[in-house]
Nucleic acid binder design. Structure first.
Lengths: 229, 229
DNA sequence: TTAAAAATATGATATTTATCAGTAAATTGT
DNA sequence: ACAATTTACTGATAAATATCATATTTTTAA
């Protein structure tokens, strides 16, 4: 038995909570649940999306390919986040790829349900708007960070971000394990540079590693580094 | 006599066009027009905004101060754009400063009018949402550009952007004249580096200058440079 | 109008970061 | 279980960019 949106807890975290019971029912009837394996795309840059994807489980990286062949990861989206919203709203093909970093479970919601509700339920629209305002603010912060901070500072910041947003496992490692390449694509640097800085941080006792897992050892010093001490 | 929003052409360019006649009337009655001199702020990072600013004339730079004391310009806003929307919508203090690059004329619209309409007129909300979706897409592009392109490429891109968005004067110079420092803050580089690259472009015949004015001479080559040839 | 201040420009140098080359370790598929 | 592939790591070097110093030009304000 497929679960119903009406009963879905995930919904509390996103704009779907502003939908009425009837609207949710329609969404639930039209939605399909999908398993996306680690490394597989949910959608890719340039795709025309026929709906949005609500993340039930796992983490997705939203990235954009640059001319020089490197991906830049613009955002990491996890449980509760809705992917593809912007594309559906502006009726353009998407400017980002969404690729699973973990095994994922996502619900596909056809755009008709969304567009319909957008036009009829101002609360829903406002809720979506608030989320987008938040995303835009975050994007502005990323711009300033990338252009004004050193790679080292951005690396430190990335680790703190991962801790704050995805937590730690029982052994004190960051719960979200990214490849070195993904880390470099979040930070916006060459993979070798990212690896080098990881080694340096390890030597300085700021972090510890085990395979590709990374744990934060000295949060205060990392924070100071981000601030530029 | 103050002009009325109902008759304002500027409105066609922004989300206010989705307002009903009654709503516009209210806005018009509550709005105030303000002259902002070149270099003066409309609002500053951290301010709590009591409304939004609709640009009637002139250009404003939206920037954020980084820890190292440099400003990063996130967006240049001109005629028709509405400033402070995001802050009002998310009910947070603003994350950006808005400073006049030109002499400006802006209309201040108290947030009550905006919030009221947001809650009652889904068309308006949707229109605002579309604009914000567009801004977010642009912000994503900026992120990728800054992290994946060289300073030279970003400089070339900045000149093309200025031409496409603000046009040229009768002598073939970019209509929007920015200081070298502002250019460096758009591009996200040191002022000296920006100046150096301007000199280089001049030598190569890509641009020509006169005082702080810059004109584009070889658009095709600039474009090729942006693409990475 | 003219002295002071600010902005532009350029050179020398230091620092940061990327690239290339190669090795070691881990992961994957059979 | 093991060869093949991918990922992680390290060193050497090159390239890009920032910083500091200083000269020149332009703008501002008394």
């Amino acid at each position: 038995m497929e679960s119903r949106c009406e009963n879905c807890i995930i919904r509390q975290f996103n704009s779907l909570r502003a939908m009425s019971k009837e609207e949710l029912k329609k969404v639930s009837d039209s939605k399909t649940t999908k398993i996306v394996k680690k490394g597989e795309p949910i959608f890719e840059e340039g795709d025309k999306l026929n709906g949005v994807y609500c993340v039930r489980n796992g983490v997705s990286k939203l990235s954009k390919l640059s001319a020089n062949g490197k991906d830049q990861i613009v955002k990491l989206a996890s449980k509760g986040e809705v992917l593809g919203q912007r594309s559906v709203i502006s009726q353009e093909s998407t400017n980002l790829s969404a690729i699973a970093v973990d095994d994922m479970e996502v619900c596909f919601i056809p755009k008709e349900s969304i567009n319909n509700t957008l036009q009829k339920n101002p609360n829903f629209t406002l809720e979506v708007l608030r989320h987008m305002a938040h995303d835009l603010k975050e994007a502005d912060d990323v711009i300033v960070n990338i252009s004004q901070k050193t790679v080292k500072q951005r690396m430190a910041e990335a680790f703190l971000y991962l801790k704050n947003n995805f937590g730690e496992d029982s052994d004190g490692f960051l719960a979200l394990t990214l490849s070195r390449e993904d880390i470099s694509n979040v930070v916006g640097t060459a993979t070798e540079s990212a690896i080098r800085i990881i080694s340096e941080f390890k030597k300085k006792g700021l972090i510890h590693t085990s395979g590709k897992k990374i744990g934060i050892k000295d949060e205060r010093k990392l924070l100071e580094m981000v601030e530029g001490f």
